[in-house]
Design a protein around this nucleic acid. Structure first.
Length: 338
DNA sequence: AAGATGCACAACCGCATTGTG
DNA sequence: ACACAATGCGGTTGTGCATCT
């Protein structure tokens, strides 16, 4: 079976967004939020007013205000949809989402990347690879698209000019770029990190039996880590991590206190909404290794716990080994050979 | 001045994952 | 358990602008 298109393509506009389209989208989202991107284009028209006007045009004895009231009380979605095809955005829902998340969102930080942000992007790329969304989650106000563009247009070239393979973040060998990352300090460290994480998860799974699993069930609850985070155990970790954040004495933070501490604090920032009682994460994809692991594996604050080992591994990430060239970033802003 | 080229960035496309009935 | 819809993500392309020749 062929893939169904994400939206009806017939008559939908493509290409750059106009100011009036932006306005429609902003107005709609400010008013209603974005519950469903797919239906948003249809609903984004000023359908309430249009609908009222349409009915009013039938010359019934009721006022325009009455119809507005009617529209707000009675669910008239099918009729609204019909009218809104004339007045709503002629854009695919996907396009609306992209426009909002990459450009119109009020919390987006415009303007050029700072040096600290660029450093952080490179560091995170060494850890996460091309997982732009995960990287973006550590840079408040920056979008994955923006970071991806920054990487492709600036940072990758800069690394190449510095003789660093942008794929592996290792210096080129004499033969040129390495095709496959060998055991770099970063990857070795990530292996340690992953090992500690798995160990912690296994431990927590065992502990879950004591906390809340039915006696007959041995299968770990998929929501266990989330519930654990919301529990007193999670609270302990948050306190612990708060202290770590305040202290911030990792090699990372020593190199660049504001940015590097920020990157570590991102571990807690991103799980914060969960702790704050927001809805269950819609997608496990949002639980990227760092954030998910930090919240789950650090749920116990026993000093010798492997979860602490995992946290320490993250804090001790030896970025300086690979990132020392960044200290001279000003000198290679316009490298002579590039 | 005009065309060629390069750059930056917004937007699109297709796939993967998740949600839902 | 399955199929389909919805959403998110990463790769790629298109477009406008600036600079170069």
């Amino acid at each position: 079976m062929g893939r169904r298109p994400c939206c009806e393509r017939k008559g939908l506009k493509k290409g750059p967004w106009g100011p009036e389209e932006d306005e429609i989208l902003i107005n709609y989202i400010n008013k209603h939020g974005h519950g469903s991107w797919r239906s948003l284009p249809k609903l984004s028209g000023d359908f309430d007013s249009t609908f009222a006007s349409s009915l009013h045009s039938y010359k019934t004895p009721f006022s325009h205000k009455f119809y507005l009231l009617l529209v707000n009380i009675i669910p008239l979605q099918p009729i609204k949809g019909l009218i809104s095809t004339l007045t709503g955005l002629r854009r695919c829902g996907k396009s609306c989402r992209l426009r909002w998340t990459n450009y119109l969102r009020p919390d987006i930080k415009r303007g050029p990347f700072t040096l600290d942000e660029e450093k952080l992007v490179i560091q995170l790329h060494a850890i996460l690879g091309n997982r732009w969304a995960a990287i973006a989650s550590q840079l408040p106000g920056r979008t994955d698209n923006e970071i991806k563009n920054l990487w492709n247009t600036h940072l990758k070239k800069r690394l190449l000019c510095m003789g660093v393979d942008p794929l592996t973040h290792e210096p080129f060998t004499s033969g040129g770029p390495t095709t496959r990352p060998r055991s770099s300090p970063a990857t070795r460290h990530m292996a340690q990190w992953e090992s500690a994480r798995l160990e912690a998860e296994a431990r927590l799974s065992k502990e879950s039996l004591f906390f809340n699993s039915p006696p007959t069930s041995v299968k770990p609850d998929p929501d266990f880590f989330l519930r654990l985070w919301n529990s007193e155990v999670g609270e302990s970790f948050r306190k612990l991590n708060g202290e770590a954040k305040a202290d911030c004495r990792s090699p990372i933070s020593q190199a660049s206190s504001s940015t590097k501490c920020g990157s570590v604090s991102g571990v807690t920032i991103d799980v914060g909404p969960i702790a704050a009682g927001s809805s269950t994460p819609k997608s496990s994809r949002t639980e990227d290794p760092i954030m998910f692991d930090a919240s789950s594996s650090s749920s116990s604050n026993e000093s010798e716990d492997s979860s602490d080992t995992a946290l320490q591994l993250l804090l001790d990430f030896p970025v300086n080994n690979d990132m020392s060239f960044l200290e001279d970033v000003d000198t290679y802003a316009t490298p002579p050979q590039c």
